[in-house]
Amino acid sequence: MPLIKRWIEIFGAIDFISVGMLLSVVAMSSAKRIESCLKAYVINSWLLALLMAAFAVYLSIPHLYAAAFFTIAGKCVLIPYFLRKIIRDLKVTREVEPYLSMPVSLIISFGLVVLVYSFLASGIFVAGVARNVLKISVSIILISLFTMMNRKKAVTQVMGLLFMENGLFLAGFSLTYGMPTIIELGVLFDMMMGVMILGVFLTQIKKSFVSVDLDKLTSLKG
């Protein structure tokens, strides 16, 4: 164990893994196909779980192992499974149909990261192991929000929401070094329920509007 601890320190594993998460979000925001988005999400969740495990080793907090395990079970296996099922059942086309082109969304994502880094350059959370994690997690949240804005299809909106939740989770456990297990479990469970409800919801939207294109929702306005 002490050996692994040293390795984590030497290689800056915590920073590496969180940057990996950021990159996967950027990849999602500029992906062209829904399957790629889903793959990015799986990668993102694996990295999140890995980061938790790294924290658990580095700071010797045993209950973070459990959190990492549940993250793998929920976010890497079950949620992607449900999402695949929803996508298959809804028979949506494979393209994500963004409003803005890929290069433009890349530039905007870059701009958001710059914005976050410049405004969070100083503050109370810039010391300790997790000194970069907060900035990264806020960037993840903002980029996923931007992606939600940018996409026409409801399925990709759900994906953006899931990424955002990953970002929040990252911020949460890196600042508090592990929330109580019961809360982490609760959040995971909420996520599962959320995805299932959204699945039903999307099917309904599809039924009433013949498409999951969110532009059609404007006709609901009174």
Binding site: Y99, L142, L145, F146, Q157, L214, L217, L220, K221
Partner: peptide, 13 residues
């Protein structure tokens, strides 16, 4: 209140 979801998300952002 345009009714467009991306716009509402934009407000949040």
């Amino acid at each position: 209140q345009s009714g467009s979801l991306p716009l509402y998300l934009g407000y949040i952002m």
